[in-house]
Design a protein around this nucleic acid. Sequence first.
DNA 1: TGTGACGTAAAAGTAGTACTTTTAATTCCC
DNA 2: GGGAATTAAAAGTACTACTTTTACGTCACA
Lengths: 233, 233
Amino acid sequence: MTTPAQGLHSHVLATLGLAITAGEYPPGTVLRTDELAQRFDVSRTVVREVVRVLESMHLVESRRRVGVTVLPTASWNVYDPQVIRWRLAGADRPRQLRSLTVLRSAVEPVAAGLAATHATPEQCRELTEHALGMVATSRGRRLEEYLVHDIAFHRVVLNASGNEMFARLGDVVAEVLTGRTHHHVMFEDPDPAAVTLHVQVAEAVRERDAARAEELTRQIAVGALQELDVLAP
Amino acid sequence: MTTPAQGLHSHVLATLGLAITAGEYPPGTVLRTDELAQRFDVSRTVVREVVRVLESMHLVESRRRVGVTVLPTASWNVYDPQVIRWRLAGADRPRQLRSLTVLRSAVEPVAAGLAATHATPEQCRELTEHALGMVATSRGRRLEEYLVHDIAFHRVVLNASGNEMFARLGDVVAEVLTGRTHHHVMFEDPDPAAVTLHVQVAEAVRERDAARAEELTRQIAVGALQELDVLAP
DNA sequence: TGTGACGTAAAAGTAGTACTTTTAATTCCC
DNA sequence: GGGAATTAAAAGTACTACTTTTACGTCACA
């Protein structure tokens, strides 16, 4: 069982993509289109379309007379949301979670700084709302509700930065936060210090204090990294 | 004339991808596969494969009975190197250059800090080598040679960070630096202050001084951003 | 024995056609 | 006028036939 699979293309793509990113086919493995067609019981047409997509993600390379070769991790489009999802669902989830968290620690403080100067009143309002939401749900095992606010908070910050590259990391952050919550010891409530920091970030943005927003977000990031070290040293 | 075009698929993909990212088809525009097949004088098979790839980049969306709809910029996979190249080659090159530079300013300092603790002796050597190369070519209109060292330098830093997400930004940085050089007033030599900073970063990494490497790289980034403000206010 | 030209076959690439499925839009009935 | 049935348009899938590239093995020649 892999994915719902409405549409043959989606199904084959999901299956193959997941298998490759999970390392089931070591780099250099050669697949042949009609072999795949047979294996999945679909036409070569469908397989070819899938291969073209995998090729655009640089997961495989297709060469005449050779076949479809699986490429090493180093050439993968690791920023492709689809690739990220596959990897988070597969074997090297911890590694992926760590590298994404490091990326966050670089990007989010800068994004917060920019948000302080660019955020619209509406965005400021949303920020405050979600920060307060986090406070409200930070105790009593309400992790799922907390997560919703946490994700929304960070998404607003990234969007408010006014930089489209940052904005597009919203989904990535959502994945990371979700992954983290669901793999935690679910007994403990979120770190109160982190909650406070979120409230303060919202404050700083509202007050147009870029330096403070950046610094506070940096502290949140440090916390996230430390947490990761404790969980997976 | 758009691209060399070895292979029908590549040609159609390049043409369509470029046109869409250049905004020639406003979001919501509907294309039909057999119309495209006719226009490019290729089979529908080829067009379908191209559409599937564009779909995986979230440039378009294909729906039955409707056709292939061009999606708004907000949904594009802006981290896809191919999309980045298309956008840099097209109309909103300045915007793209700016958002990428902001991304760099967030990522590279952190990467440099990590590099200071993770760089191998070989990487330290390369770093120093390229920094000195930059010094050597920083005067006398040797911009192309300078560029090679500049790109190599930043690539080594990103790789040495040990984070695969950072490492994969090497190509992006290369594109940005190349774009900047080629669109500058080519009369002036690179900023001497920047050159010095690169040498110092190499030094800091060699001495395992993470904080200093990070701070110095941050200064390089600030310089790049200011430069951008002067050029395209 | 080594080397280079050559031929072969295997696999991807392309084309075209026939058919299925979904679904927007129109029609028609109540 | 609103909702159900019909229709047709476009993508999705399959299959088959053919073209092009090219890795690999063969064989001749030095």
